[in-house]
């Protein structure tokens, strides 16, 4: 790949072409907020937290799905970006029923960490309080739609890494839901292999093992990227 030059927050960086802005930022220790990104999975730009400003482009773009180009002038730290990140995180909290105090992922949740990162001290939007199912039918795991942010990391890990394709997406807008098979209870799925990768991939307390209590949840999302790398070595 040819080497190109980009400028991120005024810093001159040489990088390969064909990589994303997020990858360049990570390689150069430039902080970038993410939720739907998980190493090892294809990026889809769903959460809109890794927003960047690019000179000559009027709208904000997601860093995880935008490839760098030679002499691209990129900013990741403007007030406009911070304002939109905060709005986005607030909308995550307002959209479903997130109660950190009683959540199994309290203290170990990427949404909670995003809240801290954007300085979330209150939510300015009315809570929707949707009625959400808690699917406890699986013998080992729980899927709590109250805490789902529709990042689809579970869907992608199940399809792209495990190859099972148990998880999918149903409906649109407020009614959008993660579903198991053709919207059957998870415990009745004919495709789930019980591997637990979705548990580790989930950034919040939406998918969690029945065996743990608050304060005991340990997720290891990095495992997904490591698995993908190991499999490449075996091929």
């Amino acid at each position: 790949m040819p080497v190109i030059t980009v400028y991120i927050n005024g810093q001159k960086i040489s990088t390969e072409s064909g990589v994303t802005i997020l990858e360049v930022c990570k390689a150069n220790n430039i902080p970038m907020l993410t939720l739907c990104h998980l190493k090892g999975l294809h990026d889809i730009g769903a959460c809109r937290l890794c927003l960047v400003e690019i000179e000559g482009v009027n709208r904000l773009l997601s860093g995880c799905t935008t490839q760098v180009a030679d002499n691209m002038m990129i900013r990741t730290d403007t007030d406009r970006i911070k304002r939109y990140q905060r709005i986005t995180v607030e909308l995550f909290f307002a959209e479903r029923n997130h109660v950190c105090a009683v959540c199994v992922a309290n203290g170990n949740c990427e949404l909670q960490q995003a809240g801290y990162a954007v300085g979330l001290d209150h939510i300015r939007y009315p809570f929707l309080y949707p009625e959400c199912n808690v699917d406890t039918s699986h013998p080992w795991f729980v899927m709590d739609h109250n805490r789902c942010i529709m990042c689809t990391r579970c869907v992608r890990v199940c399809t792209q890494v495990e190859g099972a394709g148990n998880w999918g997406v149903m409906n649109r807008g407020h009614d959008v839901r993660i579903i198991s098979d053709f919207n059957t209870p998870w415990g009745e799925s004919s495709t789930c292999t019980d591997c637990g990768k979705c548990v580790h991939a989930c950034p919040t307390g939406a998918i969690w093992p029945k065996a743990v209590a608050q304060g005991q949840l340990t997720k290891y999302p990095e495992m997904i990227g490591e698995l993908v790398e190991k499999r490449k070595l075996l091929q």
């Binding site: 105090a101 009683v102 199994v104 808690v134 406890t136 729980v142 029945k210 743990v212 209590a213 608050q214």
Partner: peptide
């Protein structure tokens, strides 16, 4: 009602 029983030691002290 509708929650997992294992969550009750976290919910009820509230």
């Amino acid at each position: 009602e509708g929650r997992m029983y294992t969550e009750m030691p976290t919910i009820t002290p509230r």
